[in-house]
């Protein structure tokens, strides 16, 4: 609106500038419409989840509705205190421990590996880089059978070791860090640190790692969410009730759905509670990305 009136007032403006301003206004409006559409698309499922979590089992069976009902607290109490096959607060804690360790290991060691490849020209450097990129495509499921057999051999079933240790070698995260370091980390910094007498490991930890913060934040979010939602591997390794992570608990809840005892209201509440912590962590870390990512320190 404001732009339109500005446009009108400057009647003498050259034709070129005028079309430019109008086209800017049009593209701005189109952009906002698109953004609103995408926002609705993104939030719709959360809305459905909250609505469903506020309805009793009978209301859910009766039919679908877009309006919330009054059973939110009831469902919350039921879900939180349900100790029949698992204990939800314990599950949230377990998932948090596993995901936090996983995301730190993934981000740190991927950055370390990428730094090693980018900064040092050692023998086999390129071969190792090519190899990691090649294996990056291998889905985890391909080696799952062998991995489970290995875990059994070392008696590590029902421990968190098989869930967190593999996080150290995350080829996809490595690749992202490598691309990022290549385009943003000036090697002069490493050079300067050497002149100042900093040892290589120290240079990486205290000088280069802070420069990589935006990329680290992005990859930490991805790793945290990935681990939080991971079902395939934990389900094959964890069977003890006290050690179960949330997706395993969810799968147990889901198997109840068909049965008479299944309380769908509780099921939706459990899904909601399983998502809330990761949303909080996300909102906390997303500031890193959204709060203006300014890159490089001696760029240009």
């Amino acid at each position: 609106m404001a732009n339109a009136s500005v446009n009108k007032r400057n009647g003498q403006m050259e034709y070129f500038d005028k079309t430019k301003t109008t086209s800017l206004l049009v593209s701005r409006i189109v952009s906002y419409i698109f953004l609103v559409f995408v926002t609705v698309l993104s939030l719709f499922s959360f809305y459905l989840l909250i609505i469903n979590a506020s309805r009793s089992n009978a209301q859910l069976q009766a039919g679908f509705s877009l309006l919330p009902r009054e059973h939110f607290i009831d469902n919350l109490v039921t879900a939180w205190n349900d100790t029949s096959i698992f204990f939800l607060p314990q599950g949230i804690l377990n998932s948090f421990i596993v995901s936090a360790i996983t995301c730190i290991l993934t981000a740190y060691f991927s950055a370390m590996t990428a730094y090693g490849i980018c900064v040092y020209d050692f023998k086999g450097n390129k071969a190792i880089h090519k190899f990691i990129i090649l294996v990056m495509m291998i889905p985890t499921q391909v080696s799952a059978l062998g991995f489970i057999q290995l875990v059994n051999q070392f008696n590590l079933t029902n421990t968190y070791w098989p869930l967190v240790i593999p996080a150290i070698a995350a080829p996809a995260t490595y690749f992202y860090m490598k691309q990022y370091i290549d385009s943003t980390l000036p090697l002069e910094i490493v050079e300067a640190a050497r002149v100042d007498g900093s040892n290589e490991f120290r240079t990486f930890n205290f000088i280069c790692l802070p420069i990589l913060k935006p990329a680290l934040a992005v990859q930490m979010i991805f790793a945290f969410v990935g681990s939080w939602n991971n079902f395939f591997t934990p389900a094959l390794i964890i069977s003890k009730k006290e050690l179960m992570t949330l997706p395993i608990m969810l799968s147990i809840v889901r198997s109840r759905i068909g049965s008479q005892a299944g309380d769908m209201g509780e099921v939706y509440m459990i899904i909601l509670l399983a998502i809330v912590p990761v949303v909080i962590v996300y909102l906390f870390l997303s500031k890193f990305i959204i709060g203006g990512v300014t890159l490089g320190s001696v760029k240009g």
Binding site: F109, M112, Y120, D121, I138, V142, G146, F147, L150, A169
Partner: peptide
Amino acid sequence: KWGYFFIAPFVLVFIVCTFIPLVST
């Protein structure tokens, strides 16, 4: 030579957790 130090954890874990299971699969 520092390069080897930086990539060692990744390579080691990769061999144990992915490569060996892949071969045995």
